[in-house]
Design a protein around this nucleic acid. Structure first.
Length: 805
DNA sequence: ATCACTCGTCTTTTT
DNA sequence: GACGAGTGAT
């Protein structure tokens, strides 16, 4: 989409001139969605139907035609990635400063609202956000303090319980108590809330719930935002939970006699067939509720798929048709049938991996697709191990999505904990995290005493330090003094200076420098300084973190009449001055950065840029697309997963998951299953997934002979279709007899294919050159020289080295 | 305080 | 089978 021509003609109100360039190349359904008249609407956007394009073009069109000002739009997504993408595309379409617009994640926007009205929301101005790790450690601490039997009430389960309550919008008093166990949990929920309040921290669920309550309980605030946001757009609506839906309703308007009086327009974009997050509270039913409660008049289906060939879409359509209660949608394409969907049966998980790698190499060799356009998808993370090692042995570069992200790494969290103490010394979670790290002679017993003292006095650990005596007291006092010194040293410094100073003064740098395995960690700490730097400059320390857009961040449609007199940066336009008074504050760069770190964990893509095969779970693949897709482990018990097969809802979600997986592929799709698989250290004999029987035969090509109807007629089909080896030995079920043409069991001989002079790539160290090889098999080591990190000996069985061609 | 050992877990995950 | 958390010994 070319950038908007900024002459007056192009900005003429809708209908006054030639068709807008913005609207070119849209199909009729897309055009209808983009130019919907004011009013609530549901857009059912199938996979690959140009959903993001429609969403962003709609916003651009609203702005361009003067129907909305930047400040009047609220667009909400689930992930930072999606929000960024929307912002990027929008700024490509219009010469607009999108920074001050309310485009972001649910949590990001809630945070923004709470920062602006922190007093009304009952929070300190500098409240910090607990991530899941922090939340768990806060709960553990609480459990210890209240002598909770952690056998009966595992902290993890409590976290889950509390998060679940909040997702349903329930405070402790709202939770129905059926039994003693629930009663105790509710009690702990309440204690946890008190603890968080005392420490000035909120978890993710709290961010959402507080923001909802702020709107619900405060007429002036609610009225203000309702007036302000004339256009609300929601992405991935099928993934919203009850609370998020309720939050949207508050923003949209007030309810009279069960019907929402919402003058503005709410556009919900989603796909019920791609709802795969029920396990974390997503409620597809919100789509039906939305239609009913908002009195939706217009529903538009985007069924034209621009991604895949029809064989692939036929599979997707046929599969999902087995689900009940769908809103109903069928993907179509004008592309031809393309290649058949290939199906392979392997004898073992290892053989399956070998087959995949062989196919991948052929694809790359035959120039069918670059490696980055090939994805291997799996249902559970455990499956990645075999595939990774096989790829590694074959010297095929690959990249695994998911895993530990930057701001979740231990050393980074340590550093952040120090920074948080600078902002708020009463943050006990952070206090405990670093009070003895690096070690300074403050042991568990001392901390127990300190916690008792703090509880007795009803104060923070920081304030309880003064009650401690003896050597322990002296050590604690020294720590508090250290924090105080760091705090004073940070005055008048920029963010980079503050962090640099903290890294030195805390002893973190010293500690990792003395640790022989600390090099990576030191590097990550340096990276933290860089992250802070780019946060301040490029990221413009703004969208999520700053209290509210201030004057210098005024977003405006430059040269556009539409923006005149309508200013996104005035949150409190209108007769609500009493609230207005609250909004003049900005967060310090440090506080803003800490918020950013909590709200956006960063990615783990150290090796971005490398042309590598993409490995990820099916969940992680949502929203992505690839030329060639492999889906492995299509076996009863694994996909569909055994834990989900019990009830229809669970099985249907598995089927949607499969639907998501299939629709990732543009050109080629490979499905595979294995007769046996190593799981939890035991070999399991698996039956082919029922999903194979739900695909249209005409679109398939069986690479290995199909065992007719085996999946459905297995002698032991049913809930427990996966059998443990040994438990059923001698049942007459011999994998050998059912085996298809034997998969060549190639022993990966020398495997690594490295020799002196080979150019290699390492996830951490980048490109380097092999100097020497030593040992064989699992003991093989290579000496590699990396320009940036010097020469290192790396065990090939451990280090991820790929050969650079 | 640090290491070595056992024990338990093991579907999916963003914020 | 493999990893992390928690515990006990030095």
């Amino acid at each position: 989409m070319p950038p908007l021509d900024s002459n007056a003609g192009a900005l003429a109100p809708f209908g006054a001139g030639a068709p807008l360039p913005l609207l070119e190349h849209l199909n009729p359904e897309q055009l209808a969605a983009v130019t919907l008249p004011a009013g609530h609407a549901l857009i059912l956007a199938g996979a690959g139907s140009g959903k993001t394009r429609v969403l962003t073009t709609r916003i651009a069109w609203l702005l361009q035609t003067g129907q909305a000002s930047p400040g009047g739009i609220l667009a909400v997504t689930f992930t930072n990635k999606a929000a960024k993408e929307m912002v990027a595309r929008l700024s490509g379409m219009l010469p607009i400063n999108v920074r001050g617009m309310w485009i972001g994640t649910f949590h990001g926007l809630c945070n923004r609202m709470l920062r602006a009205h922190h007093k009304l929301a009952g929070l300190p101005a500098t409240f910090q956000i607990l991530d899941t790790q922090d939340q768990l450690s806060a709960i553990k601490r609480l459990c210890k303090q209240h002598k909770v039997d952690e056998e009966r009430f595992p902290p993890k389960q409590l976290v889950w319980f509390i998060a679940g309550c909040k997702e349903e919008g329930m405070r402790p008093k709202d939770v129905p108590v059926r039994d003693q166990e629930t009663e105790r949990k509710v009690e702990l929920y309440q204690l946890y809330e008190q603890q968080c309040q005392r420490e000035g921290v909120v978890d993710f669920g709290e961010l959402m719930l507080r923001s909802y309550e702020l709107l619900r309980d405060n007429d002036a605030v609610r009225a203000h935002y309702q007036r302000r946001f004339s256009h609300i757009l929601v992405d991935e609506f099928q993934d919203t939970n009850r609370l998020q839906y309720a939050w949207l309703k508050q923003l949209a308007g007030d309810t009279v006699d069960g019907q929402l009086q919402a003058p503005g327009s709410v556009i919900a974009v989603g796909d019920d067939d791609q709802s795969i997050y029920a396990f974390r509270g997503a409620r597809v039913g919100n789509m039906q509720d939305f239609v009913r409660e908002f009195g939706v008049q217009r529903t538009i289906k985007l069924e034209q798929n621009y991604r895949s060939y029809s064989n692939i879409l036929d599979c997707a359509n046929a599969l999902i048709d087995h689900n009940q209660g769908r809103l109903g949608k069928n993907l179509r394409t004008t592309q031809g049938p393309g290649e058949p969907v290939r199906i392979h049966e392997a004898q073992t998980d290892l053989a399956e991996a070998h087959w995949m790698v062989e196919e991948i190499r052929n694809l790359v060799k035959g120039d069918e697709a670059p490696r980055r356009e090939i994805a291997v998808l799996y249902r559970s993370n455990a499956q990645s191990r075999v595939i990774e090692s096989t790829l590694f042995n074959a010297g095929v570069p690959y990249r695994v999505y998911g895993g530990l992200r930057f701001f979740e790494r231990a050393e980074v969290k340590h550093a952040l904990a120090y920074l948080r103490l600078l902002e708020n010394p009463h943050d006990d979670t952070s206090f405990l995290r670093v009070v003895n790290f690096p070690p300074r002679g403050i042991g568990a017993r001392t901390l127990e005493q300190l916690q008792d003292a703090a509880r007795a006095a009803g104060c923070s650990l920081h304030d309880a330090v003064s009650t401690m005596t003896g050597r322990a007291g002296a050590n604690l006092t020294a720590f508090v003094a250290l924090v105080e010194v760091m705090h004073e040293g940070s005055q008048g410094q920029n963010l980079r200076g503050i962090i640099g100073q903290m890294l030195q003064a805390s002893g973190l740098v010293e500690h990792y420098r003395n640790d022989k395995e600390g090099a990576d960690r030191l590097e990550n700490l340096e990276e933290l300084v860089n992250a802070a730097e780019s946060f301040v400059t490029q990221e413009g320390f703004g969208r999520d973190a700053v209290a509210l857009p201030l004057d210098e961040q005024r977003p405006a449609l430059t040269q556009s009449p539409a923006s005149q007199g309508l200013d996104a940066s005035l949150p409190m336009a209108g007769p609500t001055e009493s609230i207005d008074a609250e909004t003049g504050e900005t967060l310090s760069p440090l506080a803003a950065f800490l918020t950013h770190a909590a709200l956006e964990a960063g990615d783990n893509q150290a090796q971005a840029g490398q042309d590598a095969v993409q490995l990820m779970t099916v969940h992680a693949s949502k929203g992505l697309e690839f030329d060639c897709v492999f889906i492995g482990g299509l076996e009863e018990g694994l996909f569909p997963h055994e834990n989900a097969m019990g009830e229809r809802a669970g099985l249907e979600e598995e089927r949607r998951l499969m639907y998501v997986a299939i629709t990732r592929a543009r050109k080629r799709l490979y499905l595979s299953h294995s007769q046996t698989r190593m799981l939890h250290g035991q070999t399991r004999y698996n039956v082919r997934s029922r999903f194979f029987d739900e695909l249209p035969e005409g679109a398939l090509k069986w690479l290995t002979p199909r065992q007719s109807g085996f999946g459905s007629f297995a002698p032991f089909s049913g809930a427990a279709s996966a059998y443990r080896a040994g438990a059923r030995g001698g049942f007459g079920y011999q994998p050998e007899s059912l085996a298809s043409p034997p998969v060549p069991q190639r022993k990966e001989a020398p495997g690594h294919g490295l020799r002196a002079g080979t150019a290699v790539f390492h996830n951490k160290f980048g490109e380097g050159k092999v100097l020497a090889i030593e040992g064989e098999g699992d003991d093989a080591r290579a000496q590699v020289n990396f320009p940036r990190h010097g020469t290192k000996w790396l065990a090939l069985a451990v280090a991820k080295l790929t050969i650079v061609e």
